[in-house]
C-alpha cells in the first residue's frame, strides 16, 4: 500500500495553485487535509503527476462573521469545526455533525473544504451545508463565484466545480429567530460512515414550522434535500401526524441504491426511523 510516485507543490496563494494546476495539464490533484487523497493514493486508485498543497494558503483559512453571514475558510479542520464558538453559535449543525466525522485524530487533519469538494455521498458535512442552505465560494481562472449548496452537489464525488477550481470558503446565512436544529446518524460503529444520516434545521414560530430544511446523507448518490417531507411539514404544527406524513413523504425524496448488504428498502426504512427521531427531538427543543 505505497503510493505511486508524484511531485509535490506547496501553493503560496490561490493564484499560484490555479497556475500550478493549469501547468499540470489535468494531471494535478489538490491536497487539503489529505485524508481522502492519501489513502486513495495508497490504494493506487489515482496516479497524479503532482499534488498541489492548498493547506498553507492563508486566504483559505479563518472563521469570521461578515454582515451576519458566517464565513468558514475551506482549510478549516474538522476539529476546529467542532470546537469553534462562532460555528457553535452561527452554524450549529456543523458543530453537531463534526464529532460524527471519523475519529479525533482524523478530525485534526481533515478539512471541511476537502470534505465538501470530495462530495462523498456518505459524508456528514455536505448534508449539513445543504440543510444550512450554505453558499460555497469557488475560485477559478475566470474569477470567483458563489454556488448555492443546493446546486453544488451533483453526483457521487461530483460537484459544480470545474476541474481546477478551488473551494475557498463556505458562507452560512444569518441565524433567524426561532431557529432550531438536529443532527444524527445511524452508524455500525462510532466514527464509521453512516448507514443513514440526516441534518435538520427549522424555524419555529408560534408553535408552527415557519421553515424547515432536511438533508440526508448516505442515502443515494449525493447528499439529498427531502423536499417532499419538508413541504408536508412547512407551515404545520409538529405533531405525530405531521411526523408520520413526513416519514411517508420520504419515499418520493430518496433514491437509495440497492446493495447486497444494504437493500434500498432497508435504507428507506432507516431513513424514516431517523427522521422520526430527529423531528421528535426538534419538537422537544422547539
Amino acid at each position: 500500500m505505497k503510493s505511486p510516485a508524484f511531485d509535490y507543490i506547496r501553493a503560496r496563494s490561490v493564484a499560484h495553485a490555479l497556475e500550478a494546476y493549469r501547468d499540470l495539464d489535468g494531471e494535478g490533484v489538490y491536497l487539503a487535509g489529505g485524508h481522502s487523497v492519501v489513502p486513495s493514493l495508497a490504494l493506487r486508485l489515482q496516479a497524479p503527476a503532482a499534488l498541489i498543497d492548498l493547506s498553507g494558503i492563508d486566504a483559505l483559512t479563518g472563521i469570521s462573521l461578515d454582515d451576519g453571514w458566517l464565513r468558514i475558510g475551506s482549510m478549516t479542520r474538522h476539529a476546529e469545526i467542532a470546537s469553534d464558538p462562532l460555528i457553535r453559535d452561527h452554524a450549529r449543525l456543523f458543530h453537531l455533525a463534526a464529532p460524527h466525522v471519523a475519529h479525533p485524530a482524523i478530525r485534526n487533519r481533515g478539512t471541511v473544504g476537502g470534505s465538501l469538494s470530495l462530495a462523498d455521498p456518505a459524508s456528514e458535512f455536505p448534508a449539513v451545508a445543504l440543510a444550512l442552505r450554505a453558499e460555497l465560494e469557488v475560485a477559478g481562472r475566470d474569477g470567483i463565484r458563489r454556488v448555492k449548496a443546493d446546486d453544488f452537489f451533483l453526483d457521487i464525488y461530483e460537484t459544480a466545480m470545474e476541474p481546477g477550481e478551488i473551494l475557498q470558503a463556505i458562507f452560512v446565512p444569518p441565524v433567524r429567530t426561532g431557529e432550531v436544529c438536529a443532527f444524527d446518524e445511524l452508524a455500525r460503529r462510532r466514527g464509521d460512515y453512516a448507514m443513514v444520516g440526516a441534518a435538520v434545521q427549522a424555524v419555529v414560530e408560534a408553535g408552527r414550522l415557519a421553515d424547515i430544511s432536511i438533508a440526508f446523507f448516505s442515502v443515494g448518490n449525493k447528499p439529498t434535500r427531502a423536499g417532499a417531507a419538508e413541504a408536508v411539514l412547512r407551515e404545520n404544527a409538529m405533531n405525530d401526524t405531521a411526523i408520520a406524513a413526513a416519514q411517508a413523504a420520504l419515499d418520493a425524496d430518496l433514491d437509495p441504491s440497492d446493495e447486497p448488504q444494504m437493500p434500498a428498502s432497508v435504507r428507506r426504512h432507516l431513513a424514516r426511523v431517523l427522521l422520526g427521531r430527529l423531528l421528535g427531538h426538534l419538537g422537544t427543543t422547539a
Binding site: Y8, G34, H35, V38, A42, P104, A105, N108, R109
Partner: peptide, 9 residues
C-alpha cells in the same frame, strides 16, 4: 496534536 502518520506525507 495526534495525527495518523500514515496519512501525512
Amino acid at each position: 496534536k495526534p495525527v495518523h502518520a500514515c496519512l501525512v506525507l
